[in-house]
Structure formats: structure tokens, C-alpha cells
């Protein structure tokens, strides 16, 4: 069943007399419970696309429907995880997760406690964001989004600022959450391994204007191992797609 539907989405930035075509005829369908990763070179509009899905940017032509309803603005139905955790520095971990909801309500409190357990932050309920590491802070922001029971979780390079160890740990944590909560995910990244490791589908985008170049179904069972032959085959496949796009800068910067 289709949960999120993007039809003929076009977006242009106008700056003075320059008109830049950022997104070009994007069509995308996300099924219930699906994990989609979007990968592309920087400047291909993948973050812009995610912002449009989140309803944080509604100046585009075409339509985005969530559960059959048009997305007209940001709401708790689309949870968003930004590249930085964006926690409220004056609130403790549990208060950050609750944010606008009252912790005095026993149901809210129960759900918050459950999520703290899910993201493995027991013992840090009363800690302030300044006392957390980058990975921990990002887990708080994931819990904050999950508390609202979003229909879909949109993640914009959420682990981009983390070191390699923490990143791979966070990927597994996210997969655990996905298995547990069955929330649909759209995950933007510029890391090919990450895209293949997490996604049911990898969407490859090309730049100027941002277009969906190809969609690759990754039918590997979870948990995946990056060292296996099948994983490497998918990696080759995605890399070949990139060569078609002739965006070698990205491959260089990914250290291949």
C-alpha cells in the first residue's frame, strides 16, 4: 500500500534574474513500512526533496500526498531528523523527547520511558544535551520524533557528522527501531555503503536539475554484512550508476 506519493514535483530557485531548476519531474512512491534511501552528489536536491516531503518547504509545483492527503505544511505525521540533533539545550533528555507534551501525564511519561529504552539512553533521562555525545544526542532526536507516532520518518543525513564507529552503531540502532516500530523511513545520505546497508530501495539522484536517475531494489535480508559478496555486487551496481551520471567528484570524496 502506498503511504507517500510524490507526483511530478518540480522546484526552481529564483535569485534575481537567475532561475535554477532544482528538482525535475520527481515521481516517487513509498510503501507502508518501507525503508528508502536517497543518494546523490551534493547539490542534487536530495535535501530539498526531503524538506518538501516534511512540509517545511511548500513552494513547488506538483503534489506530495501522505496517506492520500496533500502535505500542506510541517506536522507530526512526518517526523524529521535533521543532520544536527537540534535539541533544546535547556531541557533534559526526557523533557526534550516530550517537548510540547506534559511529562506529568502518565501516558506520555510511560511512552517517553519506553522510547528512552528503545534508543538505549537509560540513566541519561535527566542529562542536559551538553552532556551527551553526538550519537546520543541524535538518538534523543529520533526518540522525540517517534513519540509523536509519525506515519513516516524523514532523515536528512542524520549520521553525517558522526565518526565511523558511532555511525555504524547508529545504523544498526536505526534498523532495530525500524523493525520494532515498523515506521516507514526515507533516509538521505551521500554514503553509498550506508544507503545499501539500510534501504529496501536505493534512489539514485543526479544533479542540475535534480532528477531520479535510477531506483535499485536491494533484496538482501537483514541484518546485512558489508563484507559479503552480494553486498559488494550491489555496491558495484550503484557505483556503475554513478559513473553513468559522471559525478566522479562524489566517488572521489567517498574515498573509493
Amino acid at each position: 500500500m502506498t503511504l507517500l506519493e510524490i507526483n511530478q514535483l518540480n522546484k526552481t530557485f529564483v535569485k534575481g534574474r537567475d532561475v535554477t531548476h532544482v528538482l525535475n519531474n520527481i515521481d516517487l512512491h513509498v510503501k507502508n513500512g518501507e525503508f528508502i534511501t536517497i543518494i546523490g552528489p551534493s547539490g542534487c536536491g536530495k535535501s530539498t526533496l526531503l524538506k518538501a516531503m516534511a512540509g517545511l518547504d511548500i513552494e513547488y509545483s506538483g503534489e506530495i500526498k501522505l496517506d492520500g492527503e496533500r502535505v500542506t505544511g510541517a506536522s507530526i505525521r512526518q517526523g524529521v531528523i535533521f543532520q544536527e540533533p537540534r535539541l533544546f539545550p535547556w531541557l533534559t533528555v526526557e523533557r526534550n523527547i516530550a517537548a510540547s507534551l506534559p511529562l506529568t501525564n502518565s501516558e506520555v511519561k510511560q511512552n517517553v520511558d519506553k522510547l528512552i529504552k528503545l534508543v538505549r539512553l537509560e540513566g541519561f533521562e535527566k542529562a542536559y544535551p551538553k552532556e551527551l555525545s553526538g550519537g546520543m544526542a541524535q538518538r534523543v532526536s529520533i526518540a522525540r520524533a517517534l513519540l509523536r507516532k509519525p506515519k513516516i520518518l524523514l532523515l536528512d543525513e542524520p549520521f553525517g557528522a558522526l565518526d565511523a564507529f558511532t555511525r555504524s552503531h547508529m545504523q544498526d540502532a536505526l534498523l532495530d527501531i525500524w523493525k520494532e516500530e515498523k515506521t516507514s523511513m526515507v533516509f538521505v545520505t551521500h554514503d553509498i555503503d550506508e544507503a545499501i546497508y539500510l534501504g529496501n530501495k536505493v534512489i539514485i539522484m543526479s544533479a542540475r536539475p535534480g532528477t531520479i536517475q535510477n531506483i535499485i531494489n536491494i533484496d538482501l535480508p537483514f541484518p546485512r554484512k558489508k563484507s559479503t559478496k552480494s553486498f559488494q555486487e550491489f555496491r558495484q551496481l550503484v557505483l556503475r550508476e554513478f559513473e553513468k551520471v559522471e559525478e566522479l567528484e562524489l566517488i572521489d570524496s567517498a574515498g573509493i
Binding site: I76, V80, R86, F88, W90, S100, R148
Partner: peptide, 27 residues
Amino acid sequence: SKLFDVAKVLEFNRWQLITRLILPSAL
């Protein structure tokens, strides 16, 4: 301003925007 985006995503109403975001941050 990045926290304003968060407030939008979490559906803060006007009152919550003032008491939970703007005043604490201006404190």
C-alpha cells in the same frame, strides 16, 4: 532559527512557541 523548524515539525502552538522556545532561549 533551526529550532523554529523543529517547533514547526513538533506542531508547537503559538503559546508553546513563546514559552517553550523563545523565552527559554532569550533567558
